[in-house]
């Protein structure tokens, strides 16, 4: 602890001094090639991809022309784009809610010495390492109206089969189910890492004060998890707003377009209509929303910290 303080002071003091030229050169020597590669192979396509949102560019063989904010005006006047944005929001919120809460519950239950802990933890996380292209096919097979076991199971308990594909409620349910199946493990691991980093001394102190289990959860555990909460919220939201593969592979935006999400719309604009302008605009809107959310969350984190 003391060590950290001196380092921090050193850094603060260092700001007043001029940068060491040697250190500067050394840093750039190490990181320069990496940044150069990044700028070329990863940065350039991003800038290119976002820039085309300001162009009128339809069709692969045509040349782009500058369009200013026209695409964005169209985006916010079009009920379908706004609908996809809303769909992404509420489907994403549901996925995030289940991932975060069930993930936390799992981590909380697993964060004590118990037999088979490693095995259970592994099974929870297992879906996260599977390939979406393969596992969405399994879910698709489940809800197949003829050979799917979802309806089979209903029939076994004496219920009428359900036309999953005709109901917005059920399609959203299945997309959320798949996304949570694959996402809960990741959230659980993050929470577990956070829980394990809490100093046991805090709990001992709470025990001495005679705190109950719930009190300890609310007054010791949760406040100590602020770091990890910020991380879980930001990565969770970023991922949830970009739900795409389950929609592409399982619902294909159905039924009747009610599960169309914004990234799927962008993808359709790109590869369906070759409308790079609108796709770029849509992508930029998602990017801005994610930025605003992340900055707000970070801000909340900083305010609480003080």
């Amino acid at each position: 602890m003391e060590q950290a303080t001196t380092v921090a002071e050193g850094v603060r003091a260092g700001k007043a001094l001029s940068l060491s030229k040697k250190e500067n050169r050394l840093a750039w020597m190490l990181i320069g090639p990496i940044l150069l590669y990044f700028a070329l192979f990863q940065g350039f396509p991003i800038v290119f991809g976002l820039g085309i949102g300001f162009t009128n560019w339809v069709g692969v063989t045509s040349r782009p022309t500058f369009a200013g904010l026209r695409n964005f005006v169209r985006f916010f006047q079009d009920p379908i784009y706004l609908g996809t944005l809303w769909n992404a929001f509420y489907i994403g919120a549901l996925v995030m809610f289940f991932n975060v809460t069930i993930g936390f519950a799992g981590a909380y239950l697993l964060n004590t010495p118990m037999k088979g802990k490693t095995l259970i933890r592994s099974i929870w996380y297992l879906p996260a390492v599977t390939a979406p292209v393969a596992t969405t096919q399994i879910f698709l097979m489940f809800i197949d109206p003829s050979s799917g076991i979802a309806n089979r199971a209903l029939q076994l308990v004496g219920l009428e089969p359900i036309a999953w594909g005709y109901s917005t409620f059920w399609m959203v349910t299945w997309i959320v189910a798949y996304s949570s199946w694959r996402g809960i493990g990741g959230a659980m691991i993050l929470w577990l890492a956070g829980l394990q980093s809490i100093d046991p001394a805090f709990y001992e102190a709470a025990d001495i004060d005679g705190a109950s289990g719930w009190q300890k959860l609310i007054y010791v555990t949760l406040p100590s998890l602020r770091n990890i909460t910020t991380f879980v919220l930001i990565t969770g939201f970023t991922g949830a707003l970009q739900i795409f593969e389950p929609v592409l592979f399982i619902s294909q935006a159905g039924p009747f377009g009610t599960t169309d999400v914004i990234v799927h719309r962008v993808f359709r604009d790109f590869y369906g209509d070759f409308n790079f302008g609108m796709a770029g605009a849509g992508a930029l809107v998602i990017t801005l929303i994610i930025f605003v959310f992340s900055l707000t969350t970070l801000r909340w984190y900083q305010v609480k910290e003080q």
Binding site: D144, P145, P161, I162, G165, G254
Partner: peptide
Amino acid sequence: PPGAVAGASEGGWWD
């Protein structure tokens, strides 16, 4: 059969 006519995938219909 319920769900077979307009499923996202043709598979259910042919099955």
